[in-house]
Amino acid sequence: METKPVIRSAMPQEIPAIVDFVLAARNTMFSRVPASLHIPKVQAELAKFQEDYLEDREGGFLIAKSNGQIIATVGYVAYDNRFPQLDFGSERVVEVVKLYVDPKWRRAGLATKIFAALQREARQAGIRRLYLHTHPFLPGSVRFWERQGFQLECVDKDPIWQTTHMSKVLRRDTD
């Protein structure tokens, strides 16, 4: 019997299981894109998991577990200004990353719940704006983020990724 998911901050000893979950989820979600175009970058990011998500004041990572297994993840890291078409000025901005939900748990509201917990954590950390990018080939992704209050910034014109950039201002007393 499945137990109700518990959402909480990731702990260092869970990093290997988190890495396995994220890589498996990424391979499934991006199955139309050659792995050579996305997996090496993700592996490099995950190699610095503890430093970027658990030790950096601009980082955070949440997991949802049921029956001792990770069933969902989401994190944020300091936005690195790598997209020149975006200008957030001097705001404190973090990038929302790695929202993955085990397929058996999809359509149960878990993505919304784990993201709500991430927003609370970011707000408590004094974050002003959340940034993310997604891709239209991921079913429902743009609409999901719009329902979470994100606004469209721009869409890249590249034929493979069509990267869709979105952001959301966090207010102290709402969201």
Rank of each mutant, 00 (worst) to 15 (best):
H133K: 03
D56S: 04
R129P: 03
L138D: 00
E121T: 11
D87L: 06
G89A: 12
L99V: 14
R106T: 14
R120S: 13
E91L: 09
I63R: 01
L54F: 09
A72I: 06
Q69C: 11
L99C: 10
E146A: 10
R82W: 15
R143D: 15
G68V: 10
N67F: 08
A64C: 06
R128M: 10
E95G: 00
R92N: 11
L110K: 01
T134G: 07
H135R: 10
V96L: 12
V77P: 00
G149L: 05
G75S: 07
P84E: 15
R123P: 00
L118E: 10
S66E: 11
T134H: 05
D56I: 06
G109V: 12
F61Y: 13
Y53Q: 03
L99D: 03
Y100K: 02
R129T: 14
S66Q: 08
K98I: 11
S141W: 10
R123Y: 09
E58T: 12
E55D: 14
Q85T: 14
Y79Q: 01
L130I: 10
W145P: 05
Y79V: 00
G59W: 09
V96H: 05
E121G: 00
P84R: 12
A117D: 06
F61W: 05
W145L: 03
D102L: 04
G126A: 10
A72C: 05
Y76N: 02
P103E: 15
R82T: 15
E55N: 13
K113N: 12
Q119N: 10
G140K: 06
S66W: 11
W105F: 14
L99I: 14
R128V: 02
L152R: 08
L152M: 12
G109S: 06
P136T: 05
E91I: 00
I70C: 01
F115H: 07
Q151T: 12
Q85C: 03
F137R: 02
Q148N: 08
L118S: 00
G126D: 05
G60I: 09
Q151H: 11
Q69H: 14
L118K: 03
G109K: 05
Q85K: 15
A122N: 00
L152A: 11
D52F: 06
P84K: 12
Q69S: 14
D80A: 12
I127H: 01
L130M: 15
K65S: 13
V74W: 05
L86R: 01
E51I: 07
V96I: 11
R129V: 14
I127L: 02
F88T: 00
P84S: 15
N67Q: 14
E146K: 11
K98M: 12
T73N: 05
D52P: 04
P84V: 10
D52C: 07
V101P: 02
E95Y: 03
V93K: 00
V97Y: 04
N67C: 14
Q124V: 07
A122T: 09
Q151E: 13
F88D: 00
V74H: 02
T73L: 02
K113A: 15
D52S: 09
T134A: 09
R57T: 13
R147P: 00
P103S: 12
